[in-house]
Amino acid sequence: MSDQNEKLLNELKEAIINCDEAEATELAHKVLDSGIDPVYSLQKVIGESAVIIGQKFDDGEYFLPHLVMAGDAMMAASKVLESALDTDSSIKSTVVLATVEADMHSVGKNIVGMMLKASGFVVHDLGVDVKSSEIIDKAIALNADFIALSSLLTTTMPYQREVIDELKARGIRDKFKVVIGGGPVRQEWADKIGADGYGKDAIEAVKVFKKLSSK
Rank of each mutant, 00 (worst) to 15 (best):
E11K: 12
E48C: 06
S150A: 12
S49M: 12
V68E: 03
V39A: 11
M157S: 04
V128Y: 05
E101R: 11
S49Q: 06
S214E: 15
S49I: 07
L42I: 15
Q160G: 07
K109N: 10
A148Y: 07
E166G: 07
E48P: 00
K131V: 03
L167Y: 08
A77C: 07
D125G: 08
K13E: 14
L32S: 13
M104F: 13
G127R: 09
V31W: 15
D103T: 08
L9W: 01
Q55N: 15
A141H: 12
D201L: 08
F63H: 10
T154W: 05
G194Q: 07
A195V: 04
N143M: 00
V39F: 13
V45A: 07
K131N: 06
A15R: 06
E11N: 13
A144Y: 06
D86E: 05
D129V: 00
N18D: 10
L27D: 09
K30G: 01
I52Y: 15
Y40P: 02
A15K: 12
R170G: 10
V95W: 02
V39Q: 15
L67C: 06
I17F: 04
I91C: 07
Y198T: 08
K175H: 06
D174L: 02
N18G: 04
L152E: 04
A70K: 00
G113H: 04
K117Y: 09
V96M: 05
V112Y: 01
G47W: 15
S34V: 00
T99M: 05
E134S: 14
G35W: 15
G182M: 05
A144F: 10
G71M: 05
I52V: 14
A205Y: 02
I53W: 11
G183K: 02
A202Q: 06
L32M: 12
V107F: 01
A50G: 12
N10Y: 00
E134L: 11
D196A: 05
G182D: 10
E188F: 10
S214Y: 05
R161S: 14
K56P: 04
S78Q: 05
G194L: 10
H66V: 00
D129S: 14
